[in-house]
Design a binder for these strands. Structure first.
Lengths: 128, 128
DNA sequence: ACTAGACATCGACGGATATCGATGTTCCGA
DNA sequence: TCGGAACATCGATATCCGTCGATGTCTAGT
């Protein structure tokens, strides 16, 4: 049940703004039909994980890697970032529910969470 | 031509990590096939516009309003934000190419840019 | 046991950002 | 012509975020 940015229902009147002060200028927009504050908070948290170029490149590299999984050492060099920074970004992506983390021996392998990006994309297309 | 997070092509060998130091541990991932740094930068800039709960609610309110357009005064109250803050968020959304701004008289009407959110959603679903 | 390597965590620092109050600008009505 | 309303912009501030070096933890060989 993906939550679109725009919920569908709407019912109104008064398209043109009023002038007087005791009446709202345009459409009052009771606000209950639209995105709740809590929903917006969680959605924004997930988009925040995507709001960094290096994290987008991490997702890209992980998804294009042959086994669809990547370890930290593969990311540090192409991104031009230090290992602690890469680990930091990976942690954010895991906590956002976008990446899986699997420790095998000394290496940590990261892979895309199936359907996670699609769920976010669905939240952007209310007409879905 | 939406740019998916993950570009499709890939060709590799050596799925298992090597041990020696002069060889990369896992998959070298030349990095040219994946998301370029510049592409990632512009994509991240647009996601950054979505990475705020109040901006998501603005998009929701605008899209659910009867004429699919809203003026600032309609947003200030339901969001619980001051007018300068709302104007600030609207400016960010306009600069991200997500909202149109049309000044009619004293009021400024904002509406969704057609296809903008869909283009962003498409960037998240490489299989499209 | 000891060493070495891969990764996570910590502390710090500089830059970005969300928010506000105050002020400027533009348009409309009286 | 003047006052007011809607909105943008400015300046300030508190917080958040990305990055790094240093350090801790765990595993695999030797």
């Amino acid at each position: 049940m993906p939550t679109p940015v725009a919920t569908s229902t709407s019912g109104h009147g008064s398209a043109e703004p009023r002038i007087k002060s005791e009446v709202q200028c345009c459409v009052p927009s009771r606000g209950e039909e639209a995105l709740l504050a809590v929903e917006a908070e969680t959605l924004a948290a997930r988009f925040k994980a995507l709001a960094d170029p290096n994290r987008l490149r991490i997702l890209s590299i992980v998804s294009t890697s042959p086994e669809a999984e990547t370890c930290v050492c593969d990311l540090s060099e192409p991104l031009g970032l230090g290992q602690p920074t890469v680990s930091h970004h990976l942690k954010i992506l895991v906590e956002a529910g976008l990446l899986n983390r699997e420790k095998r021996g000394v290496w940590a392998y990261y892979s895309l969470v199936a359907g996670a990006l699609d769920s976010l994309a669905a939240a952007l297309t209310p007409k879905a």
